[in-house]
Simulated scan of single mutants.
Amino acid sequence: MADLILHHYPTSPFAEKIRLILGYKNLSWKSVIIPMIMPKPDMVALTGGYRKTPVLQIGADIYCDTALICDVLEHLQPTPSLYPAPGKGLERTLAHWADTTLFWTAMAFNLQPKGVAQMFGDLPPEAARAFGEDRKAMGAGMVRLRPADAAAAYRSYLRRLSDMLHGRPFLLGDAPTVADFAAYHPLWFTRVRTSVLADILDNVPDVLNWMDSMAAIGHGSMEQFNSTDAIAIAAASTPADLHDDIFQDEHGIPLGSRVSISGESFGPEPSEGELIAATRMHYTLRRTDPRAGTVHVHFPRIGYCLKAAAQA
């Protein structure tokens, strides 16, 4: 198997989700640290525009969004499973709720002034402003909860997680599923990155115990790597064959068309290329970059918008 290269930064909550899954599956991986905010020229050379964190690279195949990365890692290392029977649909649905509703509620709470002050306390004021402007651009048009409303909702969601954990070690049973990794990472941000606000967790001891169990999984075997070498690997590699050739057309856009794909709500920066797959679960673009060569960039269907590229 080609090396797993994760493009991420240490304080990214979604990256923590994937780092723990790599540990859970006992996988070795290479770590490329990317900037927290734009510009990200090396990552964009691989994705063509997508800039959310993390991105998984395997040779000349570039996988965007943690929902898809989870599926890729499950395929590469089926055990222990992220989707154990019989609750596969429940696990995916709960994970989607955690990655969206729970995540944005937690982050609205975490990024109140007290949390931001801790995050950027040792840095010049320009750092906090740059971060705020970057995330504002990524979430243009999103409705954001005010901190007080977020705190009320967050407490309710924490109680619901606590109810699920009462009498069992993980959310859906005796072993973690994709739902545990998805629910953990926004709470991890509260506990680790904005710890001045972490007393919100004190009233849910079952959640704290579960978080300790999740943290104990660790990150597997990691090797530091650099983006220049990662791009060179992409340029020297050939994308893997596409095994699922079933075309599910929802847009009236045939394979071979020039298209763009962008996040439906957060991260609107489009990636453009030739549509070579549109299956039940994902899209794949073929694109060529002067530095990265020909790559296949993969996206999940859920959460992303496909459009025909504007004609020059």
Rank of each mutant, 00 (worst) to 15 (best):
L172M: 12
A308F: 03
H243C: 14
A215Y: 02
L111V: 03
R301D: 08
D180R: 01
G121N: 11
P176Y: 03
D61K: 05
Q311K: 08
G89F: 03
P125Q: 05
F120Q: 01
K88P: 00
L46H: 12
S237Y: 15
D99C: 04
G139E: 09
Y154M: 04
H166A: 11
T228D: 11
K17D: 15
D180V: 01
D202R: 07
G273Q: 06
D249K: 10
D245E: 13
A215G: 03
G87V: 00
A108F: 01
D149N: 13
D42L: 12
V295R: 05
S12F: 10
E16P: 05
A232H: 15
M164P: 00
M38F: 04
R168T: 04
D202M: 15
F299G: 10
D3T: 02
T11L: 14
E269A: 14
D149R: 11
A234K: 08
Y83R: 11
A240G: 09
A137P: 01
D212Q: 12
R129N: 02
L6W: 08
A277D: 03
R135Y: 06
A128D: 03
T101W: 10
G23P: 02
A2D: 07
D289K: 07
A183F: 09
G115T: 05
P39R: 07
M38C: 05
L187G: 00
D241L: 10
A150Q: 01
